[in-house]
Amino acid sequence: MSIRELISQFGEKYLAALVTTYKLTLSAFLLAVVLGVVITVFRLSPIRPLRVFADFYVQIFRNIPGAALLILLVYALPYLNVVLSYYAAVLIATALIPSAFCSEYLMSGVNAVAVGEIEAARSLGMTFFQTIKTVVLPQAVRSSVLPMTNLLVATMLTTALASQVPLNPTDLTGIVSYINTHAVGGVTAFAISAALYCATAVIIGRVGNRIDRKVRILR
């Protein structure tokens, strides 16, 4: 099947699939960052149970395979009378896993802040929150740009999990198996999806690099 035939037959479906993948990627990424920030605050807190809990959380979600997590959410949770929509299950799975990595990146961003600079801020008479606001956060955020860019790409790749559950409209990966079971899409269907994923990843990478170069801290 040629590209033209494929697009005339499945063009709208492709567009919908692209939108699904982008929508999932963005919402999962935002959720992951929010969760990641909370978990990082816990891990840095002077309150031990919160630290232990957060470390445990990170170990679980950075080590569980996406497929295993999705299967638990979709097929196991109903046994506990918790029934999620397919979309919600995919969204949660694709947010929880990146959230653990997000926290790891933020931790190394915070760790990159020199202890001496925190002491200097304190010596100027800054309170805890002033020190966080003027020294710790700006530096941690600026040194997290590249890892966060990678995280956004990784989140997008994780959203391919959506192809494992019946979603309508399906995502960019799901549509390849859809077309291949409904028509002889062959290599073209694969190539279109691959190109869309890859182009998105490359653009994200370029933008991230540009921002990083602008805000990188000389040490």
Binding site: E119, S123, G125
Partner: peptide
């Protein structure tokens, strides 16, 4: 602390 200045061995300027 605001009334007492401090100068460190390793400068500790905000990078």
């Amino acid at each position: 602390r605001a009334q007492v200045g401090m100068v460190f061995q390793s400068f500790n300027l905000f990078a």
